[in-house]
Amino acid sequence: MSDLKELFREKAELVAAKVTNIKSMEEAYAYAANYVAEKNPCELLIPSSPSAPQPEFAEEKIMAAPELSDEQYAALAKECEAKGVKLIKDGMRGYMAGIDAGFTIADAGLIETGSIVQQSNGEELRLATMVSEVHVAVLPASKIFEDSIAAEKLLLELMSGVAYTAFITGPSRTADIERTLAIGAHGPLELHILLLED
């Protein structure tokens, strides 16, 4: 198992994901709340008023965690509260200008490409993982596969009905100007993967 974790970490880091080993969900909550508390304020990509200065920064720290169980959400909310971070789980359409972080639990990890698989059927989760500056995803080590083909059965299950499924490989990026790599295009500027020993 630890081999798979190391192989996954190696590939994910190649695509600029930040990978951290954790032993419990509590560690994940603390990590996320801390990171958001300490990061620079979120840049608001839609001006709050026509006269707002550019760039404009948010005054409060916000994290969204749309699809946690009530229990998980309460635990994360407690950590956030202690750090002065506002935690939300819905209403993402009101935050299109950007938030600090989106917190999710990934459905699978793919070693070959260092990707996470994130079922994104819920709109709140989709937006939370796109308009956030940092996407923090917990990846249970038991869900690491060699590659997408090895994970085919799981993928087909995820896609069995009306579905929206994402492979996410590092933060958003582009090289459209002079082929110069720029991290952070329309999606998150950072992807943090918390590898959970389970």
Binding site: K11, L14, V15, E112, T113, G114, S115, N121, G122, E123, L155, M159, G161, V162, A163, Y164, T165, A166, F167, I168, T169, G170, P171, S172, R173, G187
Partner: peptide, 15 residues
């Protein structure tokens, strides 16, 4: 690249 940052699979009229 081994893979693009995103591969999006859409099956139907989602939420």
């Amino acid at each position: 690249q081994a893979l693009t940052s995103y591969v999006t699979w859409i099956g139907g009229a989602n939420e």
